[in-house]
Computed example of a mutant assay.
Amino acid sequence: MHGTLTVIDKGPVRIHSYNAPQDGLGVTTQLIETPSRIIAVDAQFVLAYADEVVAYAKSLGKPLDRLIISHAHPDHYQGAARFGVAVHALPETTAEIVAVGAKTDLPTGAPIPLADMTPTVQITPGTEVIDGIPFVFEKVTGGEIHTTLVIKLPEQGVLVAQDVVYNRTHLWLLDKDFDGWQANIDRFAAQTEYDTILPGHGEPTTPAIWAEITDYVNAGRELLGDDGDAYKKAITERYPTYQGAALIDVANAYMFGPKS
């Protein structure tokens, strides 16, 4: 397996957290195993890593019930068709995926048609009981992207935060919405009943992550000026053990234009 797998036992629920290698932008797919099925959250950027997740899911011996897309950044939805199940998302997320259109699998150059990535089932915020397990769906705005989905498993103390949280990975700060990042951090840090936090980049973590991300957001607010190269140098020197430098490069290209 090229990615890193973390398994967390939560009684009737088992979490299988797949973190892609860095050439897959360190994206994390969550496989939530309930008593009789598997719920997948986010689909990977590189199609080969989506295939790896699906192969592992099949090895668990339970049917894959659905794929949930947390938000409309391509690193979380390009591999959707590989899962072979209905794709669920908030309506805002579906609309943005459609607006972006077809994509390309960067390692292979293979086209990814829009139909392969478009969610077909609308998620309505609220509680849905799946296989006897309450799933709470919450729409979150601001921070990394204007609309994202957070999933709570209150009986298991699990917060599927996805890109509200990165673990030891450089943040995507394209929108420069530092206040939005901090508001979401504060919102979920106050919910102390959740002891297992599942990020969209990096391995599962604990509530200690809220203080770490606050520190990083403050650093981004301080260091992100009008020179992308200077910012990358400063932020990587401040956080030398963090992964995801490629995320900085991509965001810089959008903010400051490609390097000459």
Rank of each mutant, 00 (worst) to 15 (best):
P125V: 06
G61S: 08
P74T: 11
G79R: 07
S59G: 07
R66D: 10
D75N: 14
Y239F: 15
V13G: 09
V160D: 02
I69A: 14
L173P: 05
Y254M: 11
G180S: 09
A246M: 01
L90C: 08
V54R: 13
I197H: 09
T29E: 14
R37V: 03
P199H: 03
Q182A: 04
I133W: 01
L5K: 06
P199M: 01
P63I: 14
V7F: 06
V85I: 07
E193K: 11
Q30P: 01
A230L: 14
V13S: 05
T205V: 09
A102W: 06
A50M: 04
A234T: 11
I123H: 09
G24F: 02
N167F: 12
T169K: 02
M1D: 07
A55H: 09
Y231P: 04
Y166D: 05
L47W: 07
P107N: 13
E96P: 13
G11E: 13
L25V: 04
A57D: 13
E203F: 03
I68E: 05
G101H: 09
S59E: 08
E128H: 10
V53F: 00
K152G: 07
T236A: 11
P63S: 12
I68Q: 04
R37K: 14
D65S: 14
A80I: 09
V85D: 09
Q122M: 12
K58Q: 15
I8R: 12
A89Y: 07
P12I: 14
V85R: 01
P21D: 10
D195H: 13
I8S: 02
K233V: 05
A48R: 14
L247K: 02
L5T: 07
A189N: 07
T206F: 04
A110K: 05
T147W: 09
D229T: 11
P207A: 11
F137D: 10
A189Q: 13
A251Y: 08
D131Q: 15
V46F: 02
H71F: 13
R221K: 15
V140E: 05
T169D: 10
A246T: 03
T206C: 00
I38K: 06
F188M: 00
I151C: 12
G244Y: 03
W181M: 04
K10N: 10
Q78K: 12
N167W: 06
L174H: 03
P63T: 13
L67G: 12
Y77I: 04
D186L: 02
T6W: 00
T108S: 15
F45V: 11
V54P: 03
K139V: 08
G157L: 07
R221N: 15
P107E: 04
L173A: 13
M1F: 01
T147K: 02
Q191C: 07
P125Q: 08
K233N: 00
V250A: 15
K176G: 00
E203S: 15
Y231S: 11
N218W: 04
A20I: 07
T34S: 06
E138M: 01
A55R: 03
L64G: 06
P119Q: 03
P91K: 04
N252I: 02
F178C: 08
Q191N: 09
D215F: 04
D177V: 12
D65H: 15
T4Y: 05
L47Y: 08
D215V: 10
A102L: 11
A89P: 12
D226P: 02
R187E: 11
G61M: 03
Q44A: 00
G26P: 00
A99P: 01
E155A: 08
G142D: 15
D215A: 15
